[in-house]
Every structure is written in C-alpha cells, then in structure tokens.
Design a protein around this nucleic acid. Structure first.
Lengths: 211, 211
DNA sequence: TTTCGTCTCAGACTTAAGGCGGAGAGCATG
DNA sequence: CATGCTCTCCGCCTTAAGTCTGAGACGAAA
C-alpha cells in the first residue's frame, strides 16, 4: 500500500481526487489538508510515502510547504506537484524546492494515479509541457559565455533579430558609437567574431523565446 | 458500432490487432486484407467506417492503396495509417494521399482503439513524433521567399552558421566573388538587408535542422 | 573617499560586406 | 539553334562593421 496525503485548498478538487484515488486498491489516502502550513505539519506527523500538493493556495502556498517538508531530515516522502499552471515562475521554484514530480490538472485521473505509483518506486513524472521548459532552461544554464551586463543582453537580443547598429541605437536611445562598444564587448565575451555569429548564438540558445 | 477493416500483410500483426479490437464492444471488424490492392477492393465493396492501414506491404503499398480508396467518390471512410516508420519519405506521402490519422506501432492497443473511435467521430489523431514533423514542414511551406537555387541554399545555410564569405568560398571551393554574388541574390530573394538577417531567417525557419 | 563596474561617447583606423554592371560556360528545353 | 537558368567570376564603389585607445558620468560598495 502506498500512503498518500493530498494537500489542496480547493475542496471540490481535493475531494474529487481523493474519491478517485480511493478506488485504487494499492493507494491509501491517510490524510488531507487545505493549506500549505497545515499540510506540512500533517506530513511531518504521519510520514506518508507520497504527497499530492497544489501550488496555488490561500494560506501558505505549495512552494513554501514543499520547502518546509523537504527540510525535515527524516523525510523520505515524494512530493508531486499538481497544479493548473506551468509558467516559469511556478515551475522552477517548485522544482528547486524539492518537488519530485510535476503534473497538470489537465492530466487524467489515471495519469495521476500512475504518477503516484511511480513516485513511490522512485521514478519521477514530469508533464510534457513542463519537461519542455526544463529542457530549454537546462540548455541555458549550460551557456559557456561570460556574464553579459543587462545592457549588453538588450543589445545582443537586438542583434539576434537582425538589427543594424543604427537601428539598435535608435531603439535604445543611445548613439551608434555606444552600440558599437557594446557589440564589441559582446563579441569578445561570447567569443565570436562578428554579429552574424552572435545572432546565430542567440537562436541556438533560444534567448529570444523568453524575452 | 464502428465498422473496421484491417489491412496489413504481416499475419501476426494483423491477427493480433484484430484479436484485441474484437474485445472492444463498440468495434466491429468486418474485414481484413493482406495487401494494398486486395484491401482497396475490399474497402470499396463493404464500405467500412474506418480502415487501419499498414504502410509497408509486399504487394502494393499502403500509400497507393490509400490513394486508391480516396479516389472513390462514395468513400467517406477514415483511413488510419499504422506503421513503424515515421521518416519524412513515408509520413508526408501518406498524409497527402488522404490518410486521416497516423499512428505508430509503438502505440498501445488502447491508443489505437481510441484513434479508431475518434476517427469515426471525425477527430484525427497524429502521433506526437509525426506531429512534430508536420509542424516543421508546415512552417517551411509557409516560407514567403522566392525559390532559392540549390547553390544559394547551400550558401544560405553557411551564412546561417555564421560563416564569412571567405570561409564559405573555401568550403564550397569557389571564389569569394562568387560567394558575394550568391549572398547578394539570396538577400534580395529573402527580402532582407544583410547576412545577419539572413542568418536569423535560417534559424526562425529551422532550415538547419534538416540539412 | 576611493574604487569598481557599467553605460555612455569620440576619433581614427582597417576590413568585410554588399550593390551594380558585365560576362563567359554549361545545360536543358522548346 | 535560340532561349533561359544556373554557376562562375571580375572591377569599382560605398558603407556598415569592428578594433583600439581614451574618457566622462554615475551609483554601489568597500
């Protein structure tokens, strides 16, 4: 039996999920909570195998609760995030906080039950939309270049769109000489020889997709 | 009841698929064939709702059979391609021939049954790997530019990798003057003003991913 | 206050890029 | 054979790009 706790402040959702999971013979819902604080305390107390955690909650959100739970040393439970959102601001903090899997509420009940079983076996499940975001994020983290300043990044993105120095200057309200300085610094930081290669760099690393 | 015909020259596969589909109460397997010709004739005769068609067959392949079936005016059946291959040379001819859905044999039996039901309701199912190929293909079909010659495309791809005229000339064993001519023609055909924009164009349209 | 980093800009210089016009060779098509 | 397309290459010219050196202004941090 896999011992599960469900944390979600939306009663209908929580009860619905529990109702379904109860029909699965190998899953045992041993507790539920309607806020992050409450949930974290409950988890510490009853030590479930898997936690199903909503992200957006009224009193203390899921990210805080996740961090709270992961801090306890004795904890070896897996936290599955179950939410409607998959934007960067939610996904990465949740994963950094220690989430084990990341499911969307658009997933079917079967998929959620599967994710719980896999979590219990140490196998994590990342919804494909979220996985895509992770991939691009990892790619970006691997960037070998020196840190560019904010201004340089602005200029680089302009170059990546095919703008000339003149156009960049007009857009950023600075002189063309200044643009040239920035471009020159960018080229040496990225270790490329001309603006075309810099533009290629932008696209290879998908820097334009996230503004 | 959804009336289904299965066309596959591999006996084991055909019988396995039929055996499974027979367990589904809403599906009625009304016919089967082991070649494209045979299958097309059968379909014309008994007018099923959905056809499950293998692509690679000994006597008359699935693409020909699909075209054959789609040519008949009275035909309002949906053809689902079921194959192991998802390379460009197979996928696009099949879709152009009139295939309604495209499934891979790696799909689960459930997914195939689902695809049949959806086809009967007018909803097509494209396996994700195939869908990805379609997306990039569509993007390429929408390209607004004039047709480039083969040589120009070669040069353009070099530009898209950030190469200088000098480097391109050395790679293609032509003079730098010739490269300049090509680049100049490319710029005017693509309606861009410099090589950097051409490089951006290459990446926006993912021209490098398919060599 | 001094130091450091960033952003801004200048002048002088070199070079790659790109436009324009012209042209010859090969090759397929009608 | 005449036409058209492609690929090749030339010279001349203009300009955008990029390097180098130097420097002033500003704000944060030591």
């Amino acid at each position: 039996m896999i011992r599960v706790v469900v944390i979600d402040d939306h009663d209908v959702v929580r009860r619905g999920v529990i109702a379904y999971l109860d029909t699965e013979e190998d899953l045992d819902i041993i507790g539920e909570a309607s806020s992050g604080h409450e949930g974290a305390a409950l988890v510490k107390e009853i030590q479930p195998d898997v936690v199903l955690m909503d992200l957006m909650m009224e009193n203390g959100d899921g990210i805080e609760a996740t961090k709270e739970i992961m801090k306890t040393e004795s904890c070896n439970c897996k936290i599955i995030i179950l939410t409607s959102y998959y934007d960067d601001e939610k996904v990465f903090p949740a994963l950094e906080a220690g989430a084990f899997s990341y499911m969307l509420k658009t997933s079917s009940a079967d998929q959620i039950a599967d994710a719980i079983r896999k979590a219990a076996m140490g196998e994590n499940v990342i919804e494909s939309k979220v996985a895509t975001k992770m991939m691009t994020r990892f790619q970006r983290e691997k960037l070998p270049h020196e840190e560019l300043t904010n201004r340089e990044m602005e200029v680089l993105l302009c170059v990546g769109q095919g703008m000339t120095n003149q156009e960049i200057g007009e857009k950023l309200y600075i002189g063309i000489k200044t643009v040239k300085t920035h471009v020159s610094n960018i080229l040496s930081k990225l270790d490329v020889h001309d603006r075309t290669q810099a533009a290629v760099y932008v696209h290879r690393n998908q820097l334009l997709n996230h503004k």
